[in-house]
Computed example of a mutant assay.
Amino acid sequence: MKPLTNNLELHTAAANRKEIAVLIRKERIGKGVITDITEASVKIGDEWFMRENCSFWLETSK
């Protein structure tokens, strides 16, 4: 997995409809395609995740 650490990476993943994993610390709490992005949060499917509390990771194929 590759971390998405800035707006450009998040918007690129959203535009390319890439599968994203959402983690708090090392625990996966969500997974899916980004449907919306704000300064404070990222929406994956129907759920919003706070950018301050979560990390977002691009699922990479092996």
Rank of each mutant, 00 (worst) to 15 (best):
S61L: 15
W57G: 06
H11L: 15
M1A: 14
C54R: 00
L8W: 12
T35Y: 01
A15P: 00
C54L: 04
I44C: 01
K31H: 12
V42W: 06
I37F: 10
A21C: 07
R25A: 14
I34P: 04
K18P: 00
V22R: 11
T38E: 02
E47S: 01
K62Y: 02
R25C: 03
E47H: 03
A40C: 06
E47R: 11
R51I: 06
I44R: 05
P3E: 14
G32V: 04
I20C: 06
V33R: 09
E52F: 04
T60K: 13
N16Q: 08
K26I: 04
N6D: 14
A14T: 05
G30D: 05
T12C: 02
V42F: 07
A15H: 07
D46A: 07
G45Y: 06
E59R: 14
S55N: 07
D46W: 08
T60Y: 02
W48P: 02
L23Y: 13
R17C: 00
C54E: 00
N16H: 03
T35W: 02
I29P: 04
E27R: 15
K43P: 00
W48D: 10
E52M: 06
A21K: 14
N6T: 01
A13W: 09
L58S: 03
T35S: 10
K31I: 11
